[in-house]
Simulated assay, not measured.
Amino acid sequence: MPIKKPNFITLALVLLFFTDILHAATIPLLYRPLPALTSKQLAVIVNDEDPLSIRITNYYQDIRQIPPENIIHIRFDASANALSKKEFAVLKHQVDKQTPNQVQAFVLTWLKPFRVDCMSITTAFAAGFDKAFCAKVCEETRKSPYFSSDSQKPFTDYRWRPTMTLAGRSFEDVKRLIDRGVASDFTRPQGSAYLLKTSDQARSTRAIYFPEVAKVFAGQWPVNYLEQNSLENKTDVMFYFTGLMQVPNIDKNTYLPGAIADHLTSTGGVLTGSNQMNILDWITAGATASYGAVVEPCNYPVKFSHPGILLYYYLRGNSLIEAYWKSVSEPGQGIFVGEPLARPFASPPIKQAH
């Protein structure tokens, strides 16, 4: 990972903004709830050339009761890691024609491809291909208008459809991922957040936020700021954010349903063939979502999730896809993997009296 001095103006603005939104809120988070995305607002994109994609789609549609009109069919060769701009343009046109008006977000059901030219496939489907999302190593990229937003309808408000992929190394891995997301719904788990500043300085740039996150969540959610390289034997992991090329002992913790974990590194989102730990390891270990770079992002914290902003929206009841997307200012080079409709802190729907 190329080492670049952080843009401290950008960091200061994000930190100030984050501190303001929390300190200005004197009412506890759970008393200022936000709604969660519903299955009617999510479209599932399936690759009919990929038997695994079809199998994942069928299982997910059934368990999440996705309306039939929200299943979008496309066909392409799934053997490559990346699509070209031209290939993607054809597929995006087909998707846009099939997408119902009520859809506010997408979920993909494949492992490959995970990139479109120089950007991630999840941001490409969310906002369309745009070279402004790419960078020649240490440059900032196009920002997300959805970042740290109270928006309940991102496509209606911004013409963006946040996108996540249900990916794993096997159908069994993806099924367990989906089942964890479903099991998390409305459970209000009693877990903890772990924010680790590691000995890897190049990958710990995001740790500049961590002490303040712990401070502002005191009394509302257990946030542990730790200066160490790993966790093990923790049984209450709901959030785990760190920075290392390889994170040891992740399989020695218990991740609660709906848990989110990621590590800042250069190629965590390269889902096959990377010499660094990739984010599917978090999924295998028991996390319900993760995020990582598909091309070299440099070590800009704004290209990765801001844990404080993520907690702020997730604890207020947003679905996993909403909270995770709202936490990344510049998502063009990173891929989101997980079960998008997980909503552990949402309120259950009110049953209508007959």
Rank of each mutant, 00 (worst) to 15 (best):
S53Y: 04
S53M: 10
R55N: 12
T57Q: 14
N58G: 08
Y59C: 03
Q61P: 01
I63Y: 12
I63V: 15
I63L: 14
R64Q: 14
Q65T: 13
Q65I: 07
Q65V: 06
E69K: 10
I72Q: 02
I72W: 06
H73I: 06
F76C: 08
D77T: 06
A78Y: 11
N81G: 04
N81W: 05
N81P: 09
N81S: 15
F88C: 03
A89W: 05
L91G: 04
H93A: 14
H93E: 15
Q94P: 06
Q94R: 09
V95A: 11
V95D: 06
V95M: 08
D96A: 13
T99A: 00
N101H: 14
V103L: 09
A105H: 10
W110Q: 10
L111Y: 02
P113G: 08
V116H: 05
D117P: 05
C118F: 07
M119I: 15
I121D: 00
I121V: 15
I121W: 03
T122H: 05
A124I: 06
F125D: 00
A126D: 03
A127H: 14
G128P: 02
G128A: 07
G128S: 03
V137P: 00
C138N: 14
E139Q: 15
E140W: 03
T141F: 06
T141N: 06
T141M: 02
R142C: 13
K143D: 02
S144Y: 12
P145Y: 12
P145W: 04
P145D: 02
F147A: 01
F147K: 10
S148E: 07
S149V: 01
S149Q: 05
S151A: 15
Q152F: 06
Q152T: 15
F155C: 02
D157E: 14
D157I: 00
D157G: 01
W160Q: 04
R161N: 01
P162T: 09
P162K: 05
M164Y: 09
T165M: 14
L166T: 07
A167P: 04
G168R: 11
G168T: 04
R169D: 14
S170P: 11
S170G: 07
S170A: 05
F171N: 08
D173Q: 15
D173R: 10
V174C: 00
V174K: 01
V174G: 09
V174R: 00
K175V: 13
K175G: 01
D179W: 01
G181M: 09
V182W: 13
S184F: 01
F186S: 14
F186C: 07
F186I: 11
R188A: 09
R188I: 07
P189E: 06
P189T: 08
Q190R: 09
G191T: 11
